[in-house]
Write a protein that binds this DNA or RNA. Structure first.
Lengths: 210, 210
DNA sequence: CCGTAAGGCAAACGAGTGTTTACTCAACCT
DNA sequence: AGGTTGAGTAAACACTCGTTTGCCTTACGG
């Protein structure tokens, strides 16, 4: 543990090309899915030799799970901000939908990747995404449990509700993405539907008993 | 318009190998996604020459949309049966979830295919699935509109609610599928969560106003 | 009954694939 | 200052891939 010269010119360059590969892969994945992504394709896009790939990843699936961490890591921050909000229910719904729309506009490739591979053909990536989404559900459940009127909700019921919200948010993000490609209803309509759905769920929540 | 010999020994054999290709493709897709499925792979599994593929499909995407029609066609019947039921809400929820579980058990490959390719890398297939799901939503919306107490629901609100139900059903099917692969919670737990979610939505529906 | 239409075959094409091997050469650590 | 480490190179390996061409064979239809 010592340091004689400038720190990590070595490691810095490595992480740099590693990141370049992740970015290139994400871009290539806009028009195909992970199980058809070629190792050579990625290295070619970055401008390095195929063999150099193995210095960073074992597999394409391996690169895939790195991509998952990166994509859902950024989303993690957004959820934290969201849960900290303390407005009324209607206000909260509006800002949630608006934040999702904004996130999709800023990171469309990340969203597309997660949506595609969540049920895609690569087991390791599927599991990585499922694990990350479970973490979200747990966080949301925690926040929901702290809300007033949630005293008699069981742990399982809270997770059920949180899962409903998370699925709803993921679905909304997908719909915003489709809107960008003119494959579905326009973004404003998506937003309206999403708000209504969350209002309805919120209503059900308020009248939930046993 | 005449018929001198036995009808369609010709066409029958053609449809037979066509169906064999669809079945083979579906099986191959259990471990990869459509955009990585090879034309040669399919013909090899069926036992015919690569060139023979073109007698039936133009592309792999073309085969994909045929697969969509086949997969969601069978589901169509199930939904019809479901909507005809006239029990109380709780009863309806229970049989719905049970029917989904049963459907996934009988047609796991179909479910997996639709789940994978709904947000997958092949545009034509995505659109085919979206179109088919829209048909479901329309049907469900129609039935929901006929229920007592739905007089003051607007057409858009009905579609919003129907979409929520359909998404919920698709998500439940995916979860049952994950359970089969030991990638998620066990089937019984999935069923319980699904029922609770639908109960909650049902509750929200009953208290919906404007 | 015979000409035609069409599903399937055999073979070849150029191109792209993952992986291994031996190598260079610059940053690293002592 | 000099030996070691490791990111990236260059080339070759044995495949697989989609597509085209010409041909065979058989059910079809007038």
């Amino acid at each position: 543990m010592s340091r004689t010269t400038a720190p990590g010119t070595r490691e810095a360059r490595k992480q740099q090309t590693r990141q370049a590969m992740l970015d290139a892969a994400l871009e290539l994945l806009e028009e195909q899915s992970l199980s058809s992504l070629g190792l050579r394709e990625v290295t070619r896009a970055v401008g390095i030799t195929p063999a150099a790939f193995y210095r960073h990843f074992r597999d394409i699936p391996d690169l895939g799970v790195a991509l998952v961490e990166q994509a859902l890591g950024s989303l993690h921050d957004l959820v934290q901000v969201l849960l900290a909000e303390q407005d009324g229910p209607q206000q909260r719904i509006d800002t949630t939908v608006e934040l999702i729309r904004q996130y999709v506009a800023e990171h469309p490739a990340h969203v597309r990747f997660v949506a595609s591979e969540r049920h895609g053909g690569v087991r390791e990536v599927r599991q990585a995404i499922a694990g990350e989404l479970d973490r979200f559900i747990e966080e949301v459940a925690g926040t929901l449990g702290a809300d007033p009127g949630a005293e008699l909700w069981s742990r399982d019921e809270l997770r059920m509700l949180a899962g409903l919200f998370v699925d709803q948010m993921v679905g909304t993000a997908c719909s915003f993405l489709s809107a960008r490609l003119d494959e579905g209803p326009p973004a404003d309509e998506v937003a309206q539907t999403a708000r209504d759905r969350m209002r309805l769920v919120q209503l059900g929540r308020q009248h939930w008993l046993p």
